[in-house]
Design a protein around this nucleic acid. Structure first.
Length: 596
RNA sequence: GGGGCGGUAGCUCAAUUGGUUAGAGUACCGGCCUGUCGAGCCGGUUGUUGCGGGUUCGAGUCCCGUCCGCCUCGCCA
């Protein structure tokens, strides 16, 4: 084999005259006739133009050169020379070319299902890209993403190692636990009828590592949650998982904030600025979200009290049933937002549980259109409360507190997009803190954890844990950047009695708690230090730095909406003998030959 | 589980109101061309219109079912 001496991204003008060997894929060929052929040879590092020239290349090399087609794999030995023709400004190697002297055609490609060069690949359906991922990943864009992801994990390991964290692995085959997401489960052969669960996160194990005296732990680990995916999440994803002992909330936020800021700066070249803290209540009140996008203003105001003075049934019903009316002033919205557009925003509000989206314009000192006649009696109060100026438009979020806030909060994001209020290239992050401990679930008629069941109540709220769980605040915190949750964590409960109380509030009996979480409760009984930590979503960090909203772009071998790997065709049928061994009987036989 | 969009050549798409032999670009094959770089010019091969059923003289087009992909609500401690 002709062994390469440098890569397709290396050569520059000052190496003219050198003999080198390049190996790679034929990105494109340009056949100019019997005795002049160009190919762009591509590898991970770049592209170099190779020229087969009747005057300078041997005849047999010339002939092989002209037979090359896209994605053939070749090694070429040749002499670097400054290009005869114009340089190509698009290539780092654009000033030189390699004059072929020897060639080895290592592998010719079969008929290509898709083409990998970025220009052609832009329009290729994702289904084809996933099915033929080995070709898709050759694209420079995908190579760039894989490299960035590597840089992020590398930076992460270095940062935390420098700060005294130990990287410790935790098991993949663990015991199923109640609460949280749906588990993926794995049958046990030795104990037929018993099942492992795959971890939703290493949460309990990292806490136990703290009890075990490890003090500072980190791991870059796969987490698995059998829930329906979205554009920015899928069942199998990766967390940067961390835990620290003998710390309070501010200690954790300090070092994790330093990590985030330096990661964005060092790897992404992005200035995050400082990371302010905002309470969950303020985030909900002012931004209608627990992950507020603070790159633009457009804040919400509470006008419940004012709205209760109207005769507008939509308002008064919400007010009388303990709900809220939120208002958002859109500067200049009276002109910019047509009826058609506000109708579109109303659809968004409805998606998030609101009945609709009352709207009113403020022009010439009067309310116009929409619900103008209903809000006329509270005009002065509204103008003052919202600081309305001529040409503004006001949107109302109505419903329960959470519906009023979140529906209008989602509309806020849509309005910002519509009016182009989000500055390009800006990154703004913050810590959202002081989450509620619990949220009341109507269907189950019980409290559910806002964060997770191991989150400690704020010390100042410990007394409300049992007396008023709905108003008990936790020491949970989320890192939010540009409106996306990129990490979250909490100070954990290190007292077995408090942990038992929380399990009790979540509807787990003492017996169930011992049954399901006994090992954690035991660990807490044998000398648990105060501890807390964070988990960052690695996929989201990569997405944000590369500027994509598609999580599959940042995962080498991602899954589809139905959890399939189109390349290896997982999941597949099991061999009946395997099932027999595991003691599993299928209710209906699965056709193992089935094809899509 | 619900809602929405899509599936036609290897790929990206077109195909009038249901109407002749389903087209174009690209890839690939052949030919021409010595400075191209998304090369160009000429010619050619390529179809279970996702799958199954129905309506009709006639279905890519209409109806029903189903599969796959994407977006989304629920869900994601």
């Amino acid at each position: 084999m002709l062994k390469r001496t440098c890569t397709c991204g290396d050569s520059r003008k000052d190496q003219a005259g050198n003999t080198v060997i390049l190996s790679g894929w034929v990105n494109t060929y340009r056949d100019q006739g019997k005795s002049l052929v160009f190919i762009d040879l591509r590898d991970r590092y770049g592209m170099t133009q190779v020229v087969f020239d009747g005057e300078d290349s041997p005849a047999d090399v010339m002939e092989l050169g002209s037979s090359l087609r896209r994605e053939d794999v070749v090694s070429v030995e040749g002499i670097i020379r400054v290009r005869d023709g114009k340089p190509n400004a698009k290539l780092a190697t654009g000033e030189i070319e390699l004059v072929a002297q020897k060639i080895e055609v290592i592998n010719r490609t079969a008929k290509l299902p898709i083409l990998p060069d970025d220009h052609d690949a832009d329009g290729i359906g994702e289904e084809h890209r996933l099915r033929h991922r080995y070709i898709d990943l050759r694209r420079p864009r995908m190579q760039k993403i894989l490299a960035l992801r590597h840089k992020i994990t590398q930076f992460t390991r270095n940062f935390f190692a420098d700060n005294g964290f130990l990287e410790i692995e935790t098991p993949l085959l663990i015991t199923p636990t109640p609460e949280g997401a749906r588990d993926f489960i794995v049958p046990s052969r030795h104990q037929a009828g018993h099942w492992y669960a795959l971890p939703q996160s290493p949460q309990i194990f990292k806490q136990i590592l703290m009890v075990a005296g490890c003090d500072k732990y980190m791991q870059i680990c796969k987490c698995l949650r059998d829930e329906d995916p979205r554009a920015d999440r899928q069942a199998e994803f990766t967390q940067i998982d961390l835990e620290m002992s003998f710390v309070e909330q501010d200690d954790v936020l300090k070092i994790m904030g330093e990590f985030a800021i330096s990661l964005y700066k060092e790897v992404g070249g992005i200035d995050l600025g400082e990371l302010p803290q905002m309470s969950w209540k303020d985030a909900m009140d002012n931004y209608g979200s627990d992950r507020p996008d603070i790159r633009f203003d457009l804040q919400l105001a509470d006008v419940t009290e004012i709205a209760s003075k109207t005769e507008f049934k939509v308002f008064t019903e919400a007010c009388n049933s303990g709900g809220s009316v939120k208002a958002m002033r859109v500067p200049g919205g009276a002109e910019k937002l047509t009826r058609k557009k506000t109708d579109g925003f109303a659809e968004i509000a409805k998606t998030y549980g609101a009945g609709g989206l009352p709207v009113v314009k403020y022009q010439g000192g009067e309310f116009a259109t929409g619900v103008a006649k209903f809000v006329e009696p509270i005009k002065n109060e509204l103008v003052e409360a919202l600081g309305l100026v001529d040409g503004d438009l006001v949107m109302f979020g109505v419903g329960s507190y959470r519906v009023a806030c979140t529906s209008l909060g989602e509309v806020r994001l849509a309005v910002a997009k519509e009016l182009d209020l989000i500055p390009e290239g800006m990154f703004r992050g913050l810590w959202v803190i002081d989450f509620p401990m619990f949220d009341w679930n109507e269907d189950a008629e019980r409290w559910v954890s806002e964060h997770h069941p191991f989150t400690a109540p704020l010390a100042s709220h410990l007394d409300t844990l049992e007396s008023d769980p709905g108003n008990c605040l936790s020491s949970g915190y989320d890192l939010v950047i540009n409106g996306a949750e990129v990490g979250g964590g909490s100070i954990r409960i290190h007292n077995p009695e408090v942990q038992s109380k929380v399990f009790g509030l979540l509807g787990l009996s003492q017996e169930e708690a011992e049954n399901k979480f006994g090992f954690l409760l035991n660990a807490l009984r044998f000398g648990a230090p105060p501890h807390g930590g964070v988990a960052f979503g690695l996929d989201r960090l990569v997405m944000m730095m590369i500027g994509t909203t598609n999580i599959r772009d940042v995962i080498a071998f991602p899954k589809t909406q139905t959890g399939a790997d189109l390349m290896c065709e997982a999941p597949g049928a099991a061999d009946p003998a395997q099932l027999e061994e595991l003691g599993i009987i299928m209710r209906e036989p699965v056709d193992s030959t089935e094809q899509a």
